[in-house]
Simulated scan of single mutants.
Amino acid sequence: MHAIRLLAYGPVDNLTFEESADPAPGPGQLLIEVHAAGVQVADSVVLDGVGGALGRQALDALAPGGRHILHGWASGTPTEITTSDLIQRQITATWAIGPRMIPVDGWSALEKQALEEAAAAHLTPLVTRFPLKDAAAAHRALGERRTHGKVVLEPR
């Protein structure tokens, strides 16, 4: 059988063409004959909450006609996108937090309201607590997305 394999993550040059034995299905498995297959090398949608150099790498991975949706810049700087990027690569870019979410007074009014609500004890932060001795379990839970809000290790 002919096979195209990606043996190391990276550019399309990492794909190799190989001859290999026909696969044999195991118990409860099915062998399907494939006559043609496609691979999408580039992304069609990027949700960018990081910005900076990583946001730019994600933008560069977009396929023609792709969409880049920004919703933050955890890196400290937003992703640099030029008009030339949009035109030459035939992509669109938009900011996910629309004008209805941002008060007329801007972010400072929203910040002031949040601090007032917190001071009045109207806000309850989401916290997942673990005993300090279970730090490894806390790390696993974070990796498996089984936590809510901040994770706190408590010396008990």
Rank of each mutant, 00 (worst) to 15 (best):
R56E: 14
S75C: 08
G26R: 11
W73G: 00
I87F: 10
A58Y: 09
P64D: 05
S84H: 11
E80I: 10
G28T: 05
P27L: 14
E80W: 07
L70Q: 11
L31P: 00
T16H: 12
P78H: 08
R67H: 07
P25K: 02
T16V: 15
E18C: 10
E19W: 14
Q57G: 06
V12F: 07
S75V: 02
L70F: 07
A36M: 09
G49C: 11
G65T: 01
W73E: 06
I81K: 04
L59P: 07
D85E: 11
G55Y: 02
S84I: 14
I97Y: 07
T79H: 08
R89Q: 06
G52F: 01
I32N: 00
Q29M: 12
L86R: 03
A61T: 15
A42M: 12
A96D: 04
E19N: 14
V41F: 13
Q40C: 08
P78N: 03
E33V: 13
A93P: 03
D85W: 03
V50C: 08
G10T: 12
A63M: 11
P23G: 01
I81N: 04
I91Y: 01
A63C: 04
Q88T: 14
Q40N: 14
E80T: 12
A37M: 11
T79A: 13
G10A: 14
I87N: 03
G49M: 07
R67M: 04
H68Y: 12
L59N: 06
I91D: 01
S44H: 11
R56C: 02
G72D: 00
P64W: 06
S20C: 13
G38P: 03
L30C: 11
P25T: 01
Q88I: 08
T82K: 10
I87Q: 04
I32V: 15
H71K: 00
G38L: 05
F17K: 14
H68Q: 00
D48F: 04
D43S: 15
D60Q: 08
Q88L: 15
P78Y: 04
I87R: 12
R67I: 01
D43A: 15
A63W: 03
G55H: 00
S20Y: 07
H71F: 15
A96G: 03
A24D: 11
G52A: 06
I32M: 09
L59D: 02
G66M: 09
G55I: 02
D60N: 15
A96H: 06
I32S: 02
D60W: 07
I32K: 00
A36H: 08
D22F: 13
